[in-house]
């Protein structure tokens, strides 16, 4: 088969090959578009990761508290967001919620997708946080309370610092999943990598080159995030703990 990598140097308007491969003066090439799509993918993923960590940690913690109502809230949250397909959740955020809650109508779809992907992932992170806290010996919690810490203090100073270190590896793979799952945002017309792949493939008919570039960027993004989290894992490791990855 014949490769045609020059497709990326083409102007998106008239298909002419631009001399420097980057567009100028309002005209953009497919390369420009690809890079901006990569930016959207990264923005959606990283913001969603933030949302997911926030809500996932909160709900995971609630599920380990001694209060029945809070445990129920955390469990219900997790089951709700875990048992509906991501694409359907994105549609709910994009098509359904703004119709039911009028103030949401002005919110850009980018943020709705971030919330959808973030809350979907929060269910998985809540499972990991819960498992991390429950993997600690019961004596840790008792010792904290016996020292006169309140329950929040026990979590803040005794349980969470260790639990979060334990769950860095599963959190790493969940973060890589977020980058992969952000591809679903194409369904609500976010101009991210998959959307670029679909449209550029249609316009240029050079599907293989386009898909290869997009796939490579997904791969690079997930790999970079993996290395970053691994570096954090090594850095915050508690000396003397088995299973360290130094």
């Amino acid at each position: 088969m014949n490769w045609d990598w020059q497709v990326f140097c083409k102007n998106t308007l008239d298909g002419e090959i631009m001399p420097r491969c980057f567009g100028s003066g309002g005209e953009i090439t497919y390369l420009d578009w690809l890079l901006s799509a990569w930016g959207w993918t990264l923005s959606v993923s990283l913001l969603a990761l933030l949302v997911a960590l926030l809500f996932g940690s909160l709900m995971g913690i609630l599920r380990t508290t001694p209060h029945r109502g809070l445990v129920f809230l955390g469990t219900a949250w997790t089951e709700l967001f875990r048992n509906i397909p991501l694409l359907v959740q994105i549609f709910l955020w994009y098509h359904v919620l703004p119709a039911l809650v009028p103030p949401l109508r002005g919110v850009p779809s980018f943020l709705l997708v971030v919330m959808g992907l973030g809350l979907f992932t929060s269910a998985r992170i809540s499972e990991q946080v819960r498992a991390g806290i429950q993997s600690l010996p019961r004596g840790q919690r008792m010792a904290g309370l016996a020292l006169g810490f309140t329950l929040p203090q026990t979590y803040r100073y005794v349980l969470l610092p260790v639990a979060f270190r334990i769950i860095i590896p599963p959190l790493t793979s969940e973060s890589m999943n977020i980058i992969k799952n952000s591809s679903v945002a194409f369904a609500v017309s976010i101009s991210e990598l998959t959307m670029f792949a679909l449209q550029a493939q249609e316009e240029t008919a050079r599907g293989i080159e386009i898909y290869l570039a997009v796939t490579a960027l997904y791969f690079i993004s997930a790999f970079a995030l993996n290395r970053l989290l691994h570096a954090i894992e090594v850095r915050v490791q508690i000396p003397g703990v088995i299973g360290g990855s130094r």
Partner: peptide, 15 residues
């Protein structure tokens, strides 16, 4: 395992 499922679906549909 390192490619998003949506991209795998598109890849096969193309290939």
């Amino acid at each position: 395992r390192s490619i998003p499922l949506v991209m795998v679906i598109l890849w096969f549909f193309l290939l």
